[in-house]
Design a protein around this nucleic acid. Structure first.
Length: 261
DNA sequence: CGCGACCTGCAT
DNA sequence: ATGCAGGTCGCG
């Protein structure tokens, strides 16, 4: 589930559950999660209090009163689940319990999620957050200046801009009418400005969708959720031409060859 | 750069 | 059985 909008929503859930609470236990049910967060590290978090939950790009950081940070990255299929009384789904890979009895369960069928403990919060190599107000077209142009890679691939590079993944990269480029194959360093500033606006619109719409429909069984507007993603051969909503799928950097890119230049 | 690895489940 | 999946890293 996790690009910026989904992680933003997940972080809000974690915040509601965890902030101000101290950890009473962390159970790791899959070897992959024990690899990233060894049991003794998990044990050392017992008694520590969550001061804040922040999102950076696609990762969530639990700032602890000890000064450490518990960092969670959902990778492909992670999500928070608030357990009820019944048995936990088999796909729950970790359970964090708090002093008020609340629990946060990491639900991740593929078990690719990473939990890690930073003793001293270090600088990461993330570029500016995609929703960072300070991110301007000029800043983006500078980051792209030396990159002779397709713009779609550049948008997936978290060291250039943080938070965009495979779905919203395609969606934002469609909205900005930019061909995903364009070399990143050849896009003029005005078009980068358009692209940034498209990114923000795409992501904020997705966050709204998330708040409105996540976990609800309402008549799902799933068919209209994406304009190009997973719509190969379906008609473009702007010009009616068929959406194309190509592979870039080993991943599917969806676009309209007719209205994206 | 592209590609496999990391994991599991789902659709074809 | 095969291929694909909303991510990232490390390899050649």
């Amino acid at each position: 589930m996790p690009e910026l909008p989904e992680v933003e929503h997940a972080a809000a859930i974690a915040r509601r559950i965890a902030v101000g609470r101290s950890i009473t236990s962390i159970v790791l049910r899959h070897a992959a999660q024990r690899r990233s967060l060894p049991p003794r590290a998990a044990r050392s978090l017992v008694g520590d209090t969550v001061v804040a939950v922040e999102r950076r790009g696609k990762s969530q950081r639990f700032r602890m009163s000890s000064g450490r940070e518990l960092v969670i990255h959902f990778r492909m299929t992670g999500d928070w689940l608030i357990p009820d009384d019944g048995p936990l789904p088999r796909t729950v890979r970790a359970i964090i319990s708090f002093d008020d009895g609340a629990r946060l369960a990491l639900d991740d069928p593929r078990a690719l999620s990473v939990l890690s403990l930073c003793e001293v919060p270090a600088e990461d190599r993330l570029g500016p957050d995609a929703l960072d107000r300070a991110l301007s077209a000029a800043v983006l142009a500078r980051a792209l200046a030396s990159r002779r890679i397709p713009i779609k691939v550049a948008l997936l590079d978290q060291s250039i801009i943080a938070g965009i993944g495979n779905i919203y990269a395609s969606e934002a480029l469609w909205r900005a009418r930019i061909d995903p194959r364009r070399s990143a360093n050849t896009i003029p500033i005005p078009q980068l400005r358009t692209l940034l606006a498209a990114i923000r619109t795409t992501l904020t719409h997705a966050i709204r969708w998330q708040r409105r429909y996540y976990g609800s069984s309402d008549a799902e507007p799933a068919e209209t959720r994406f304009n190009v993603y997973d719509r190969e051969r379906e008609p473009c909503r702007r010009c009616g031409k068929r959406i194309r799928r190509i592979i870039q950097a080993g991943r599917s890119t969806y676009f309209c060859a007719s209205c994206q230049e």
